[in-house]
Nucleic acid binder design. Structure first.
Length: 590
RNA sequence: GGGUCCGUGGUGUAGUGGUUAACAUGCCUGCCUGUCACGCAGGAGAUCGGCGGUUCAAGUCCGCUCGGACCCGCCA
């Protein structure tokens, strides 16, 4: 027997009882005569004591034991003397007097200490991921992840959703992200793709009469990564037939409220806040706004155009925007240099050519652009921005996209550095009525904003050919604290509508048939109206656990360049393997 | 595809172009029977990511390259 109790669960009630524990050496303190070891397992740790008077043999072994040795020990639970109690430790009022020790496995000295809050760099942690995962905070994150998936599964199961698996080896589709491809051995020159999401299959399951489907599904996208993006990630994917928007969204809210309650013990108020895409962009400069703080974008295009500042006037004439944010009471917080260098550095990657500013003072404005605004204009700005002495106004003037994205990023940056964000808050937000299509400069055509199976808003349908960019979609995103958790939509289930959609997307009939013919054919066999959504599990866990990187929520994640530092994937394969797959790797030229 | 930052004993950092590369921690050895950030004494441990260049002289400057982090583009 390796053990009959867990280290972190022992209490003084067991005093006098003999227990057998198994775990790892967290810390060894050798006082010459007596040796103390903190023994750690998944449940926590407890101090075990080796005293030669109890067992010379066990002491001899403990003398040689080092950090991260894996042990099984037997001894008597003992209450500590009052002066020896350590109130900082959960099991600090007891210790185990060891009579028997068994070294199950030795350990090299670990490259970093197995404890919370370590400073080891990310690459070292990933190379020794199995050691990193031993750290309590990592363990806690994965316990939480388990609670998240378990809670979601029971919720959806109770609502009669069926968990159905869909293929990992599937068909490459032209829309959306770049596919990870898998060469076929049996079909020379042909490839499977790993799914970007189970989208097509879940729609086919609706055609199959499943009515309610869910899956905790792995998705793969071969695109460049970010702190909140991994090449493979997990979604809770949901789809239902006889879909109606309101009840469906109510159920999703229920599911998330239930989730946060079960996992964090926090009550989230309902209904969730809602913004249309247009409102979100207008107020926050983002389609996934962090609504935990204000400082929204204020449109000053009309006022700015009346000023004598040439760039503001020109922007207005070209149909652009002048917008500002009011950094309340922080005028003295930023020097001219900090605005011109630090804050400008935030907006410039988004294409903003400048960042104008005004400091609000009693009876006027101060700053390089103040002279372009007369008293009346200044008064209008004060009124529009609710400015008070001590406020700092920051302006960007450019086309709508640049103004919104840059000021949106600036707002977020300021919210973080000025501590305007309530870190304990969970602000869920629906963002609705996304555009159905957006124009791709790269491809010189309209592409689906969500995916090509999204139902347009019916009243916009007549504009789908004349002004495709203005058509809204029956789609919605779920946003939490500035992160897109997921998106969904009502789907097209009608063959003609789907054909029309592919036409707008620039597909020939033949190409649409070849790529998606199976789906369109399914629509001809009584496919019910349906819709659904998918929510990113990794991001949910990241936010609930208060982590800042998705890597901390995935057991074996990849780096920003999509490599695995532990296994060294991806890696070269043998000529023989390539041959079987009918592949010839082009020689890389320098 | 582009940008910013980083790479120095096991780990984390410091390091004006100039002597033997510093500090903390970890590790090893010895001493120590009540520690829990144990203590005390001693010791080992670095081709300064790699290649090339500038220079009398490079951890330090330059170029390339590899690796990591973050951002823009990209991510239906």
């Amino acid at each position: 027997m390796y053990r009959n109790a867990n280290c972190g669960e022992l209490t003084a009630d067991l005093a006098g009882k003999t227990v057998t524990l198994a775990g790892w050496v967290q810390k060894r303190r050798d006082l010459g005569g007596v040796i103390f070891i903190d023994l750690r397992d998944r449940s926590g740790f407890v101090q075990i004591v080796f005293n030669p008077e109890v067992s010379q043999e066990a002491w001899n072994t403990a003398d040689k034991v080092r950090s991260e040795y894996c042990l099984s020990v037997t001894g008597q639970v003992s209450k500590r003397d009052p002066e020896a109690v350590n109130p900082k430790i959960k099991t600090g009022d007891i210790e185990i007097m060891i009579s028997e020790i068994n070294v199950l496995n030795k350990s090299k000295t670990p490259p970093f200490p197995i404890e919370d809050g370590i400073e080891a760099s990310e690459d070292v942690r990933l190379k020794y991921r199995y050691l990193d995962l031993r750290r309590p905070e990592m363990l806690e994150t994965f316990k939480m992840r388990n609670r998240v998936t378990h809670t979601l599964r029971s919720f959806l199961d109770e609502k009669d959703f069926l968990d159905i698996e869909t293929p990992i080896l599937t068909k490459s589709t032209p829309e959306g992200a770049r596919d990870y491809l898998v060469p076929s051995r049996v079909h020379p020159g042909e490839f499977y793709a790993l799914p970007q999401s189970p989208q097509l299959f879940k729609q086919l399951l609706m055609a199959s009469g499943i009515e309610k489907y869910y899956q905790i599904a792995r998705c793969f996208r071969d695109e460049d990564l970010r702190a909140d993006r991994q090449p493979e990630f997990t979604q809770v994917d949901i789809e239902m037939s006889f879909f109606e928007l309101k009840p469906f969204q109510d159920m999703i809210e229920d599911m998330l409220v239930n989730l946060v309650k079960k996992v964090k013990g926090i009550d989230i108020p309902r209904p969730f806040k809602r913004l249309t895409y247009a409102q979100a962009m207008d107020l926050y400069g983002s389609d996934k706004p962090d609504t935990r703080f204000g400082m929204t974008l204020i449109d000053l295009t009309d006022i700015a155009a009346d000023s004598t500042l040439k760039v503001f006037k020109e922007v207005q004439e070209k149909g652009g925007k002048v917008k500002a944010i009011n950094v309340k009471g922080k005028a003295s917080h930023f020097s001219r240099k900090q605005v011109d260098e630090d804050l400008r550095g935030i907006v410039s990657p988004y294409g903003a050519k400048g960042l104008a500013w005004l400091k609000v003072e009693e009876g006027g404005m101060k700053g390089p652009i103040a002279k372009f605004f007369d008293e009346a204009l200044t008064a209008r700005i004060v009124e529009r921005t609710n400015a008070e002495p001590g406020d700092l106004l920051l302006f960007v003037a450019d086309n709508k996209k640049i103004v919104e994205s840059s000021l949106g990023a600036l707002r977020l940056h300021l919210g973080k550095i000025l501590n305007l964000i309530d870190k304990s808050a969970f602000n869920f937000l629906w963002v609705t009525e996304f555009p159905l299509l957006s124009y791709s400069e790269e491809e010189h055509r309209f592409v689906a904003e969500h995916h090509p199976f999204t139902m347009p808003v019916l009243e916009d349908l007549d504009k789908i050919e004349s002004d495709p960019g203005s058509v809204r979609a029956q789609s919605y995103d779920m946003v939490l604290n500035g992160f897109e958790l997921g998106s969904g939509s009502e789907r097209i289930c009608n063959h003609e509508m789907q054909e029309k959609m592919f036409k707008v997307l620039g597909f020939t009939k033949e190409r649409a048939e070849k790529q998606f013919g199976f789906l369109m054919e399914a629509f001809e066999y009584g496919t019910p109206p349906h819709g659904g959504m998918a929510l990113g599990i990794d991001r949910i866990v990241m936010l609930l656990a208060g982590r800042s990187s998705l890597r901390d929520t995935i057991a074996f994640p990849k780096t920003a360049s999509a490599s695995d530092l532990l296994t060294h994937a991806p890696s070269e394969v043998s000529e023989a393997q390539l041959g079987e797959l009918h592949l010839d790797v082009a020689t890389l030229l320098k």
